[in-house]
Design a protein around this nucleic acid. Structure first.
Lengths: 126, 126
DNA sequence: TTCCATGCAAATCGTTTGCATAAAC
DNA sequence: GTTTATGCAAACGATTTGCATGGAA
């Protein structure tokens, strides 16, 4: 992410303005509406860069394509493993203790948003 | 999963005997060593069925193919988002409270193994 | 003898890559 | 003028599907 680009600027804007965890394809469609010449690879490439620089978060699940989330205040994600819908929620953990325990047992250092909660959502339960 | 099949039996056995969270491909290779005629689709199809009937657990990550885990006692998974390695660990949460909170805020009902912890492992930190 | 599971190959889906061109610095 | 980012199309990896066949109940 060394050089500025009009496309990247727009991609950031789109993710930032989306509060529904869009997929790469959805982001591509929105950007394309404004700039019909944009290519899918540009979207993928930039999403990758933005994730690396911690500007956005990438959420992978069993079901469907990855989704992206602009980094705002601390919140967690609960994912429906049937339909792939993502819900935000807030909950304060004993992070310190949990982190320490995981670190000791596995060597892995997790962050607040390194926890994904999976389950079945209301509408899929029927 | 209505009818018995020799192939399924072997697939279950392989996952059960693997303590390293194998991928579908890895499972396929092991089964194929015993039964060269087995097909990849059979492995995929059966893994899907076994996940549905809660005999095994499917773990998806940002990196690489899904991995499978035979259902034993309660343990959690910490995934390295760089190399995809999965570590087991044990930690007792305040599940009831957490579950209730998520349920209230999102409608999602999670189970113990519906929590995946993501971070960077020791060897990838270098 | 009626389903259900299999094997094979082709198709699909999400994503990445190679390469020539265009834009940033 | 030298990078770096783009657009396109082709390649890719993981998984799913359609269809004919073989095995289970």
């Amino acid at each position: 992410m060394k050089n500025y680009s009009r496309q990247r600027e727009e991609i950031i804007k789109v993710v930032k303005d989306s509060y529904n965890h869009p997929t790469a394809e959805e982001i591509y469609m929105i950007v394309k509406a404004k700039d019909p010449a944009v290519s899918r690879s540009t979207v993928y490439r930039n999403l990758g860069l933005l994730v690396e620089s911690n500007l956005i978060k990438q959420i992978s699940m069993k079901v469907g394509p990855d989704r992206y989330d602009y980094m705002r205040k601390n919140h967690n994600h609960a994912v429906c493993t049937k339909c792939g819908k993502i819900f935000d929620f807030e909950y304060s953990f004993e992070y310190d203790e949990l982190q320490k325990s995981i670190k000791e047992q596995t060597g892995i250092e997790i962050s607040n948003d390194g926890i994904v909660f999976e389950g079945i959502c209301d509408s899929c339960k029927n």
